[in-house]
Amino acid sequence: MGPSRATPAIDRRALLRGGVGLAGAGLATIALVPIPAAPALAAAPGEVEAAIRALIGDAGPVDGGIVLHAPEAAENGAVVPLTVVVDSPMTVADHVRAIHIVATANPTPDVATYRLGPANGRAQVTLRMRLAAKQTVVVLAEQSTGTVRRAAVVIDVKVGGCLS
């Protein structure tokens, strides 16, 4: 496994423009990370947006409150580790009820959904996913309060892991 790093949430509009603004609290730096060209077999752009809408409906996600640990570069796209940590007290009144993972440049964008609740005590999951090529992975956390939080991370992939 490659080195892990924590990634602050990113701004969606900046993401759509092709750049990533580091909007985490206390961070003054701006990093520009180009979004890699979609591989030929990737889902059409509208398909990613449709997949996200199917997961969270009309909710407007808010960046922040999620830390992602993932390798900057994965040797094997078939097995890319990801840890999602959502800042939540996980009480009956205020908890994360679902975490969705979306791979924006895969042939089909959906990775998984995890449904949790106050019994979990901690809003954290670790998984292994397939990535076809270098791409942005988007994580959405639905909260009991109705808010949806979002974070994203760019992961480079040496050998694609979807169709091989």
Binding site: V79, P107, P109, T113, Y114, R115, A119
Partner: peptide, 11 residues
């Protein structure tokens, strides 16, 4: 207490 819904990109 916990459910995972696996889709295509789960390893």
């Amino acid at each position: 207490v916990f459910t995972a819904e696996f889709r295509n990109a789960t390893s």
